[in-house]
Amino acid sequence: MRLLIILALTILNLSFAMSEKQDKTVIKVESKPQIKEEEEKIENVKFYTERSTYKKGENVCFVLENNSNNEILLPSTAPYAIFEKEKPEVAIFSPVAAQIIVVLKPKEKKQWCWNQKDIEGKEVSSGNYIVRITIFDKSGKKYFLKSEFSIKL
C-alpha cells in the first residue's frame, strides 16, 4: 500500500513538473523606424495660404497653382488636412469630400477655405498650424505639399 502511495505521488509530482515546464522560445521583435512623409518639390507647382496670419474666426484660404505644363491629379474634391505645427502626426481637421479624381490642368489653380473648426466642429485655439495637400503627377507619384500659418486673437 505504501508503495502504491509513493508511486502515485511520484507520478503526480512528475506530471505537475511537466505541466509547469514552459517553452522558453524567445521571439525578438524589431521595431521598424517610422517613415516620415517628406514634402517633395514638384516643379512649377505652388501651394500656399493667402496670408501667413489669420484672426480668430476668419476663413483660412489656401491655393494650389499648377504653373507646369502637366496635369496634376487630386485624390478628392478637398485633398487637404490641417495639423497643429507642434503635433503634426494627427490631423485636427480633414474635410469629408467626394472621393473622385480631380484633374488640375496646366495653368489652372484651385482654392479651398477652412473655418478654423476641428473635426468635432469646435473652434481651434490660437497657434501655429500646417495645411497639407496630397497630389499626384500623371505617373502616379504622390506628393505632399504644405504651407504654415498662424491664428492670432
Rank of each mutant, 00 (worst) to 15 (best):
L4R: 00
I6H: 07
L7Q: 06
L7A: 13
L9D: 07
T10F: 15
N13Q: 07
L14D: 08
L14I: 11
F16L: 14
A17T: 10
A17S: 15
E20F: 15
D23Y: 13
K28P: 03
K32C: 00
K32A: 05
Q34E: 07
I35N: 12
K36E: 12
E39M: 07
E39Y: 11
E40C: 05
K41H: 07
K41S: 08
E43T: 00
K46P: 00
K46Q: 06
Y48N: 02
T49W: 07
R51E: 13
S52H: 12
Y54V: 06
Y54M: 08
K55P: 00
K55D: 06
E58L: 14
V60R: 04
V60W: 03
V63Y: 09
E65G: 03
E65S: 09
N66P: 02
N67I: 01
S68I: 08
N70M: 10
E71H: 11
E71M: 10
I72H: 02
I72T: 08
L74F: 05
P75R: 03
P75M: 10
T77N: 14
Y80E: 06
Y80I: 01
A81W: 07
I82N: 06
E84A: 08
P88A: 13
E89Q: 12
V90Y: 15
I92S: 05
I92F: 12
F93C: 07
S94V: 08
S94F: 13
V96T: 13
A98T: 04
A98W: 06
I100P: 04
K105Y: 15
P106N: 00
K110R: 15
K110N: 10
K110G: 02
N115M: 01
N115R: 11
N115A: 00
Q116I: 03
Q116M: 08
D118M: 03
I119D: 09
I119A: 07
E120M: 08
E120T: 04
K122Q: 11
V124K: 01
S126H: 06
G127E: 02
G127P: 10
G127M: 02
G127L: 01
I130D: 13
V131G: 04
T134F: 10
I135H: 02
K142R: 15
Y143R: 05
Y143H: 07
F144T: 03
L145H: 01
K146S: 08
S147E: 10
S147G: 02
E148N: 10
I151F: 05
L153W: 04
